[in-house]
Computed example of a mutant assay.
Amino acid sequence: MESQVRGGTRWKRFALVMVPSVAATAAIGVGLAQGALAASFSVSGQEFKVRADKLVGHNLIQYGSIATGKDLKGKDAAHPVVVSGFSDATISNMCQSVVTPDVPFFGSITLQLNAGTQADKPVEATNLYLDVAELDTDAEFKNIDIGVAAGDPSNKTGIQPNAKPQVNPYGFAQRAEVATLSNVKQKAWATTAGTFKLSGLSLRLYQGSKECY
């Protein structure tokens, strides 16, 4: 991905919103279950919604970044996001939806994915990175540090590999040993994961808008 922001005063804007409630960022979504994170990719022109009863993640690191790609008309687009990284996470009763508008002969089409609906079989992820635009949740953090540098080598999860062109390693970030998020509702642009295990996966297409919330 080409760099859109490399530092300077723009990065200070992230500090205004990087408060503990935003540190709770938890996008779930479909990861790249290939054992290693994607080196670079262009985000689609569509956000997706995610709802979950609960997410428990370890070694949270959170910082500001830019997701770049094209809009639905093929024009260049850049989206400020809050990236949350976890060394591992479990997600209970996850629902993800994305609506594609103006499909010929059908109008809007919704793709909805559900997984981890059984209490003893949650969704499981490792090396999880989430590019989030909006979040509503109840959050609890264990051993949180606010105001650390994004690229500090003591951050156990660390910034996403090969993401440095989009991330100021000296910019504002925060970390926590454990993050527990309940009643999660969010909009996201992208999710990547080293592994992503979706127990009881159900995928459906609906005509019209049938989002998770």
Rank of each mutant, 00 (worst) to 15 (best):
E2N: 10
S3L: 11
S3N: 13
V5T: 07
R6G: 13
A15S: 14
L16F: 11
V17I: 14
V19I: 13
P20C: 04
S21F: 11
S21A: 12
V22G: 01
A27K: 02
I28G: 08
G31D: 03
G31C: 07
Q34E: 15
A36W: 15
A39W: 10
S40D: 14
F41C: 12
S42R: 06
S44I: 09
Q46M: 13
Q46I: 11
E47V: 10
E47W: 09
F48H: 05
F48C: 03
R51C: 09
L55D: 02
L55F: 06
H58T: 13
H58I: 08
H58P: 00
L60F: 01
G64N: 01
A67V: 02
A67L: 01
T68L: 04
G69N: 00
K70N: 12
L72I: 15
G74R: 08
V81M: 07
S84G: 12
S87T: 09
S92K: 07
V99S: 02
P101R: 10
D102I: 08
D102N: 15
F105S: 12
F105M: 10
F105H: 12
Q112S: 08
A119Q: 14
A119K: 09
A119V: 09
P122S: 04
Y129T: 00
V132C: 07
A133S: 11
L135M: 10
L135Y: 02
A139I: 11
E140G: 07
E140V: 11
F141K: 04
N143G: 06
G147V: 06
D152S: 06
P153A: 10
N155Y: 00
K156H: 09
T157Q: 09
G158M: 04
N162H: 14
A163N: 04
Q166F: 06
G171T: 00
F172C: 01
R175W: 05
R175P: 02
A176Y: 03
E177P: 02
V178A: 02
V178S: 03
L181H: 08
V184R: 02
V184L: 09
W189V: 12
A190Y: 05
T192D: 09
A193R: 08
G194K: 05
L205F: 14
Y206F: 13
G208P: 05
S209V: 15
S209P: 10
E211A: 13
Y213N: 15
Y213L: 14
